[in-house]
Simulated scan of single mutants.
Amino acid sequence: MVIFALKNSALEAIERAQNLAELETSYKAYLGKKGELTLILRSLANLNEAERKVQGKEANDLRNLLEKRFAERKKEIQREEIVIQEKLAIREHVDVTAPGKRLPKGHTHPLTLAQTKAEEIFQTMGFTVAQGPEIETEWYNFDALNIPANHPARDMWDTFWLKPKNAGHLLRTHTSPVQIRYMEKHNPPLRIIAPGRIFRYEATDASHEFNFYQLEGLMVGKEVSVANFKAIIEEFYRQFFGKPVAIRLRPSYFPFTEPSFEVDMRWNKGAWLEMMGAGIVHPNVFRAVGYIPAEWRGFAFGMGLDRLAMMKYQIPDIRLLYSGDLRFLQQF
């Protein structure tokens, strides 16, 4: 009775197996080292000779039957899996001769377009592109630029100070620190531009952002003058906007230049637009980097890349540049 019941349950388990893993589990349950039939075969030694002959024959016959049926079922499952794989292969067939799908092209951000164009123009005039960190020290952002602590000129820059404030770290308010770092490591004469992101604690509107891009420039030599600066900026605007433009210089004040001036540009024969601040490098700035003011002169300037991009591509609101709106970006 035990052998008969075991035979029926084992054969049912073999038929229920849907994959090789399930079949292997059933095999171990009946014919494994601790399988039910294996335990019966081991227990035959405890029977008398007459019982051992009868039950031994029945158990061995069942083992041979199950071994055969397990092997047959294994081949059946393997054939079934091959059929399934072939059907999947047909369904997922790739025609390598078919034309590929054209991937959509990305669009270059207008700020990147403006910065790349500006860098190319200044490089043709002998300027090197310099970079610096966005997290700056108080020394590079203010002190070395002739803006000492408690100087009222610091109110001109709404600064994001990093905690703890007494550590003197901040998000740079201009890329002028790049000029200081570059002059510390290079001897004059030199020409550099420093494009990059800057941060100001300002309210956001159509023409202001707390995070925007600036391009500053510096030229140092023996006989550098305002006339040199004017000629370079006029040529830059001519190439950038693709047409000659008129500019004018208005007296102004910046602590790191003396004299200082604002640069205005006449746009489309209309009103004058303020475009940048500039001036002759202050002697104290040269002293901070180890230059001798009596031997060297230079001019420095700073303009907003955002404004250049807005004017060139007729963008009415600076916030569009940072919106991530694909409808806007796909126009470029």
Rank of each mutant, 00 (worst) to 15 (best):
P133F: 04
K312I: 02
L171G: 06
V129K: 13
S260W: 05
M219Y: 06
G279N: 05
E209G: 01
A98W: 04
P189A: 14
P133G: 08
E72M: 10
A278W: 00
P283F: 03
T257G: 13
K75Q: 12
A246W: 00
I90M: 13
Q131V: 06
V224C: 13
Q78H: 02
E15C: 04
E216Y: 02
M156E: 15
S225D: 09
N211A: 11
W272K: 07
G302M: 04
F142N: 01
A227W: 03
Y313G: 08
E86P: 00
V289Y: 08
E76C: 02
F127W: 02
V129S: 12
N166Y: 04
F286R: 03
L305R: 05
Q314L: 12
P255C: 11
K163D: 15
K269F: 06
A59P: 04
G279I: 05
H93M: 13
S260Q: 09
L308R: 02
G270H: 06
K185R: 14
Y182T: 09
I135Y: 02
Y182Q: 06
D325G: 12
S252W: 00
R266C: 14
N211R: 04
E136L: 04
A21C: 01
W272R: 12
L103Y: 02
G35R: 01
L170F: 02
A45Q: 10
A194K: 00
G132D: 06
L190H: 06
P104W: 03
N268I: 02
I233G: 06
P177W: 04
E24S: 15
A231L: 06
V245F: 11
W267N: 12
E202K: 07
P110K: 01
R238F: 03
G221T: 05
Q18N: 14
T137S: 15
R307P: 03
D317P: 07
F256C: 11
A114R: 04
D143N: 11
L113H: 01
P188N: 11
G196V: 04
S260G: 13
Q85D: 13
F160N: 10
G132W: 00
L6K: 07
R52V: 08
A194F: 01
I192S: 14
F261G: 14
K57A: 13
R266A: 14
N141H: 04
G56F: 03
N166K: 12
A89S: 14
P316S: 09
G32N: 04
K163R: 10
F236M: 12
A271V: 07
T204P: 02
W272V: 10
D306H: 03
G298L: 06
E80R: 06
K269Y: 07
M310N: 09
D205I: 01
W296E: 07
I192E: 13
M219C: 15
E81V: 07
V2S: 10
V96D: 09
T175P: 10
S176E: 06
G270Q: 08
R287F: 02
K101A: 09
M265D: 07
S9P: 00
P133L: 10
I147T: 05
R319N: 10
G217V: 03
K312S: 06
I247S: 08
K101V: 11
L62K: 05
F199Y: 15
S225R: 10
K269D: 15
